[in-house]
Amino acid sequence: MTKSKQLITIKGTRDGLTLNIDDSCSFGTVLNELERVLSTEYMDEDAPMITVTIHLGNRYLHKEQEQELRDLIRSKHKLVVQAIESNVLLKEDALTWKNESELKVITKMVRSGQVVEIVGDVLLIGDINPGGKLVATGNIFVLGSLRGIAHAGTHGNRQAVIAASYMQPTQLRIADHISRSPDYESTGVYMECGFIDEKEEKIVIDRLQILTQKRPDLNGFERRILNG
């Protein structure tokens, strides 16, 4: 190699190998270079599998290219790719990411027969009436009466919570859990929240204040949203 700068640097850590790949050369060059570098390494047959973390720098790889990279490294003895990290993000992915972590504010009465679906967290200023449904992939906060159905964490987020100023829901759903109102006439409760209790494996309803202990992440989450 006549080039003064190495395209691939390898660092060994306690957690395995870290490959830093230069981001200014072509992908083809990277593959060739990788092939060359890794073949020269001597591997002990009895050694355990070594995990590899790849840092791409400011390079973006397509799904196929990523697979190609994984395949190449896997073809070497005892190496397996654990993670591929890149500083670059597709605009599309960034928007989805933003969408999913953003708090959407909606002012609306969700009436019987209406379904409102949201990606991310939602703050509803208004009521959800019986027969109405609010669905979100994140958390649900209702500044009003929740009398209908609220479904939080639809994509399987069991950490999601549902909070309401007035809680008298027909059903609460979080991820794959469903709880329904009791069969006897019951009045609602003020300022409460529903979340999945890990021990009991079901949705429980408790005072809003309990969230500080049960879901401390909410704080950081909210802060992240506020700071963009």
Partner: peptide, 12 residues
């Protein structure tokens, strides 16, 4: 009342 709620939603 439930049906009225539905109708109000449609009227909106």
């Amino acid at each position: 009342v439930r049906d009225a709620d539905r109708i109000i939603g449609l009227l909106e």
